[in-house]
Design a protein around this nucleic acid. Structure first.
Lengths: 130, 130
DNA sequence: TCAAAGTTACGAATCCATTCGTAGGTGTCA
DNA sequence: TGACACCTACGAATGGATTCGTAACTTTGA
């Protein structure tokens, strides 16, 4: 479900996001979602999803005429990979610096801050008492 | 110093990182740094830096024969932009979720956790008493 | 039945990042 | 002075992402 992590391109990530949110979907469904954001032809999405199937980023059920696509990678490890990748490329490996930027430039709600606090506590416990 | 933010490519970001760390540098100096990591021709770095100058990502002093390049964007707003970009593309706009992934997948030291705690406190103060 | 709508397959064009070779100019030093 | 090292400029090749048009097939509904 999560083979050799490859950084998905912008278009691929947009499609994966739809599949993660909607679950297994047809090209038509994915295109309908993406077309709300930006102008995009149907066959453009189709072609991209076919390429993604070749790459192994998605699988598809071709038993019916209208194929059903499914993300071949879970969302969480992919997100983790992308964060680590950005940390390495833009933050010299310092995840702390990334969080600094995220906290600075984000107008987080109090609830979100509370949740981050809980995660921080958990990370601290894990760090201090392995 | 930070005009219309454009997402720098991988190569461009690598060069910007060197310029941020070293300050104004020559192509030779940047190439020496980058060549330690991966095999890379001198003219490859030169060409990329020339393109970056055309794009406005760097400026250069051509008064001497050996040109001196300088990052045209500060590091912090560029990092902030990249984080926001990733939040939008891979985390549906939730900076909190990005921080969750960063905390989960990172083996942060106690000191780093303490610093994140301080930043979190500051963000909370700013959120509760604007 | 048969035209319209929907679907996949696929080639091709385009754009961009990346890489490098070559040409030509400039400085250095023996 | 003259060979050598270093510099910039620039064209070109490569590869990948993206986009779309067209062809061919299937389903549907009047």
């Amino acid at each position: 479900m999560c083979p050799d992590p490859i950084r998905p391109s912008d278009g691929e990530l947009a499609i994966l996001s739809v599949l993660w949110r909607r679950g297994p979907s047809t090209v038509r469904e994915v295109h309908t979602e993406l077309a709300q954001e930006r102008d995009l032809g149907y066959t453009t999405v189709l072609k991209l999803m076919q390429i993604m199937a070749d790459k192994g980023l998605v699988t598809r059920d071709a038993s019916a005429m209208t194929h059903v696509y499914r993300a071949a990678r879970d969302q969480e490890p992919t997100q983790a990979f992308l964060v680590q990748d950005l940390v390495r490329r833009a933050f010299a490996g310092s995840a702390k610096d990334l969080m600094v930027r995220a906290l600075e430039s984000q107008t987080a709600t109090g609830e979100e801050l509370d949740e981050i606090q809980r995660l921080l506590d958990a990370a601290r416990r894990k760090a201090e008492a392995p």
